[in-house]
Design a binder for these strands. Sequence first.
RNA 1: GCGGGUGUAGCUCAAUGGUAGAGCGUCGGCCUUCCAAGCCGAAUGUGAGGGUUCGAUUCCCUUCACCCGCUCCA
Length: 551
Amino acid sequence: MTTQAPQGAPAVKSMDKIVSLCRRRGFLFQSSEIYGGLNGFWDYGPLGVELKRNIKQAWWHDMVTSHNELVAPPGAPAPYAMVGLDTTIIMHPQVWKVSGHYDLFHDMMVDCRQTKRRYRYDQVVGRWVECRGQRVFVTVDGEGPTVEQDLLQRALKFFNLRSKQADQLHWDGPVQPLSSVEDRSQVLGPDAKELGTLTEPREFNLMFKTYVGALAGEDSAAFLRPETAQGIFVNFKNVLDSTRVKIPFGIAQVGKSFRNEITPRYFTFRSREFEQMEIEFFCHPDQSQQWYQYWRNRRFQWYVSLGLASERLRLREHGPEELSHYSTGTADIEYAFPFLPPGKFGELEGIAHRGDFDLRSHMEGKLDPNTNPLQVELGPDGKPRWRGSGKDLTYRDETTGQRYVPHVVEPSAGADRAALAFLCEAYDEDQAPDDKGKLQSRTVMRFHPRLAPIKVAVFPLVKKEGMVEIARDIYAQLKKHTTCFYDEKGAVGRRYRRQDEAGTPFCITVDGQTLDDRTVTIRDRDTLKQYRVKIDQCWDEIQARLQAPEP
RNA sequence: GCGGGUGUAGCUCAAUGGUAGAGCGUCGGCCUUCCAAGCCGAAUGUGAGGGUUCGAUUCCCUUCACCCGCUCCA
């Protein structure tokens, strides 16, 4: 029988259909679904776990194990070494204080009941003012040179006065923080029109908190890591001392991270438990710019090489206003997920030039990112707000004798976001003929063969004449090499379609001719073409096709 | 966290204050020699909890989840 290549325009990607397929075929389920689910947590099903493992394995293989430190890869300024780590999810609480996550993820917030806006408690400042016998604490969000002017405008607006009537306002006391006010009922929120709309300050904790040891108390409080990177930084010296790696080199880690996101949304895109694939690349400050360029391009090409080659993928360089001043460059690799509005992209990976911020922070104490040059952030007592380890994390170049704090380039990828992007990219609907030759719509997951959860399926054409036995034997042989799937139930067309939805690139079918000449057919998921090969050679053939799929 | 919307079978969707149906899918059987064929049969249920009621999937409350918009987003 002859088959035709797929025809017709590419299907419009509908997130509903993708989500539905993910559930139907066992890629993704909601966590704890039988209890109603848990917001921001997702489980990978039998197909999903293979897909995600393949992504992580491809990343680890391409970045770490297959990397040859003797040769500079194309585009790299020099040869470099790569090693891996697997660090704990719970680390010393000081790690997060020094890294800045504790401050950043630990704010007290106040909400405005009227405007629904939220403010950082410590950033709202105000001043008492009296007018026509009413005493009000007017506030603005954020300090700055214009605070007094802003407060004046707010007060004029509230009392319905013109600028030239400003002398009717009687200011009482200096500008002071919101925390100095006990009675909230006389407070005018930064954007409110009425008094008393601000809530009491509430702790707003983006890190998951837990307790080490059986007794819970603030002394034993610890946090689930919000990123894997810090595990690498705190082991920088261990790696140097144990492996003989020389700068430039990278340390890679894959692992779970946790963030108590305010609004988990968009399927698995913003989850509270997620997996990262991170590299911290250490280099000489003078070369850091070149390495940043290298990793930007290298990481972008990685997604391209696995099938995200479409116009849905882009590399976006951050503008100056998005950069911390110590970073000389940050780029996001972004994908136009179908759940986003047209023209919007979602982040898959960020490649950040982080300078020496992280290593120095862990040496000296938390640095203040707003200082230039970077200085340790001081507390009220004039000592470091958060003390560093005090350990020497500098690097000594044996050939030049130079000692310096290495600079860091950080390609930080989300494994779950990559999985979601590959799922979205793979989803396609086309036309395939049914047994009467009439074109029927077909749903097919066009995964790159490296990522496909199942590489090959084996079918007897019918359950007759010994085809089952031969097919089962082929299946047993292939199982030793790769993930494969066996099916003998129902019409063969139905079995092909099932594999199309699983994204299986190849199906081997035992038919009548097999009995005569020991050949089988290999059916290609994307072209629907079939090739006849000897049973003995089918693994070689599959292997070759997995590595070099037809364009 | 706020506002709006939605929750019925694995999926897409019906129906009803009084025994919850269909198509597709799934499973079993028969038949089938290459792309979701046919025939026979089967399983699976109103997100969860509470209230009103003789009786609630339907009305009310709470809660959970999902979608949209704000807010947040290393």
